[in-house]
Each structure stands twice: as C-alpha cells, then as structure tokens.
C-alpha cells in the first residue's frame, strides 16, 4: 500500500528541501547522458578524452558538456542516482510485495493492451526513448524541471509542466481507457 498523500507529500518535500539545503536541487535525466558517454567510450575509445590543456572534452559537442563526469563517474549526481536505486530496492524489500505478473506487465497495461509482456517491454522501450529525448531537449525531467523547478518558482518549471501535461493527459485518456 502506498503512503497517503498527507504523509508522503510532506516527507517527499523534506527530501527536496534537504537536497537544496545541503547540496543542490535534485535532477536525474542528465545521468542518462553520462552513462551513454561511458558506454560510448567503451565502444569507441577516445570519444571522451583529455585535450591539449588537460581538460576532459569530447568529439561530440553534447557529451563534451559532461566530459568531466563521464571521465570520473564517482561524482555527486551519478552516485545520487545509484543511491536512489538502492533506496527504492531496500524500500520494496521492506514494505512492498510486487507480484511476478506485475513485474512483467503492470495491471493497467495488461487491461488496456493485449500484447502480452513482450509487447509491454517494447512499449516501455519506446516510451523511455521519448521521455529521455524530451527531457534532454527540455534540459531536465519531472524531478529537475517540474519538482525542483516549481519549488524554486522557476518559470521554466511551469512551462515544462504545462508542455508535459498538455500531451500526457490526452495520451493517457486515449490509451489507458480501461481501469485497473
């Protein structure tokens, strides 16, 4: 059972506040680029390399912005995301029991698509590609723009939230008609 919003909301808010108090606002989607850079570098060695001045850079203009983090992933933002995964895993072991069928194909998707779990995995893959492409074009995701942005009264956070819900609500209303 999920935490009631009256408890979960304030607790989640405190985590976002602690992040700003102690370090900086929470953000996640940049780390997909960092991991991409690390994987890219294993396939094409030298994609991220030190320039003549000793500073890390890349032949790809976008990866060059994150060259330092790709060269040394043991930094705050990358470890943060790894720790998130650890926290979620721990929490699901202590509090939650996710049924096996749900791990393959969530109930709401099973009710609305008759594609089986392989179909669900393809849908999740396509969704992931759209989400991260959009997040990088926007310069942040639901965490960085919507939550961290709006809590700081950043106008970009409101514009991002408007754009995201503008398409997310109609898409879900059309695709997720059956309830579960």
């Amino acid at each position: 059972m999920v935490l009631n919003w009256k408890i979960g909301g304030p607790l989640l808010g405190v985590v976002f506040f602690l992040a700003v108090l102690l370090v900086k606002p929470i953000g996640v989607s940049t780390q997909f680029v960092v991991l991409d850079g690390i994987l890219w570098n294993t396939q094409v060695p030298g994609t991220v390399a030190q320039g003549a001045d000793g500073a890390w850079t890349s032949s790809n203009a976008y990866l060059a912005k994150y060259a330092d983090d790709i060269a040394d992933p043991v930094n705050y933002s990358f470890i943060f995301v790894a720790a998130m995964m650890g926290g979620a895993l721990l929490s699901s072991i202590v509090f939650g029991r996710i049924p096996l069928r749900e791990r393959f194909n969530p109930d709401l998707w099973r009710a609305n698509f008759s594609l089986g779990w392989i179909g669900r995995w393809i849908i999740a893959f396509i969704g992931g590609a759209l989400v991260l492409f959009g997040a990088r074009l926007a310069g942040g995701c639901t965490s960085g723009h919507m939550m961290s942005g709006m809590m700081q009264t950043a106008v970009s956070g409101y514009i991002f939230a408007f754009g995201a819900f503008l398409t997310a609500f109609p898409t879900a209303r059309i695709l997720l008609k059956k309830e579960a």
């Binding site: 759209l130 926007a138 995701c141 639901t142 398409t167």
Partner: peptide, 20 residues
C-alpha cells in the same frame, strides 16, 4: 523546454515511467 516537455509527456503516458 516546451517542446521537450511535450515529447516527454507522450512517453510518460505510454510507459508510465519518468527518468527517476
């Protein structure tokens, strides 16, 4: 920000996940 948000919104509804 607006265009990226709109693209993310479609994927969010399709997948039921955001990056975090």
């Amino acid at each position: 920000v607006l265009l990226g948000g709109a693209i993310l919104g479609i994927g969010w509804a399709i997948a039921g996940y955001c990056p975090g």
